[in-house]
Amino acid sequence: MLRLTGLTKRYDRGEAALAGVDLTVPDGEVVALIGPSGAGKSTLIRCTNRLVEPTEGTVELDGQDITALAPAALRLARRRMGMIFQEFALIERLTVMENVLSGRLGYVGFWASWWRRFPPGDIQQAFHYLDRVGLAGFENKRADALSGGQRQRVGIARALMQAPALLLVDEPTASLDPRTSRQIMRLILELCDEGGLAAIINIHDVALARQFAHRIIGLRKGRLVFDGKPDSLTTDALTTIYGAEAWATLPDDDRDG
C-alpha cells in the first residue's frame, strides 16, 4: 500500500508544483492521474520514488517511509517501484535484452552488471517477460530499431523485472498512436491484475483513463480536486479539473472492446 501525506514540492522559483497531496493507493488498485499540463502530475510521480526530492510531506510504501531513507536504502526501496516513461527512456544503443535486464540493476553488483553477467534466474525471467509483452525473439535487437509501441513494451518488461509492488507510469501513451495506446494500456492493466500490482498512471487522455483505470484522481495546480470511480467523472468534475470547456463533445462511449 502506498500512502502520500501532505506531499509538497516547491521548485526554486514560482509557486508549488505540488501543494499538500494526500493519497492512499491500496495493493492492486490502478489509479489514473489526470489534470492539465503543469498541474504537477509528473512531479507527483517523481516525488514518489524521489527522482525529484519532495520539499515537504511523506511517502510511505508498505509502511516504510521513503522520504526518510539515506541514499543506499533509497536505492533498495526504488526496486519496489517500477517506472514507465513517456518517451520510453530505453537505452537506445543497447539491445532489448540489456534494457530488460537493466531492471535488475538494483539486485546485481556493479561488475556483474558491467560484464552483463546476470544470474540465470534473471535471464529466464527476462525471456519470460519479453514473451509476455509480445516481444519473444526480439532480445538481440537494438532498442533504437524498434517501433514506439515495441519500445514501450520493452519499458514495461524492464519495470516488471524489478519485481515491483507499485508501477509509476508517466504518460505511457503520449508518444503513441490511438490504437497502440489502447494496446499498451490494456497490457499494463492485465499485468497489474496478474501480479496484484498497484499503479499510478499519469495520463492526458481522459477517455483512456475512464476506460481502463479502477479509480481516477484529478490534479489541478498541485492540489487534489477529484477522487472517485471512473463513472463519477462528470462534466462538472472535468470543469473542476481542467476549467470550463464544452465537455459534452467528449466521446464518452469511446470503447474499442
Binding site: 520514488n49 533498495l76 516513461f85 518517451e87 537505452i91 537493466s102 531492471g103 509509476l168
Partner: peptide
C-alpha cells in the same frame, strides 16, 4: 531521461 530511468530501477 535514459539515465533517470536507470536511477529509477534502484541502480
Amino acid at each position: 531521461t535514459q539515465s533517470e530511468a536507470i536511477t529509477a530501477t534502484g541502480a
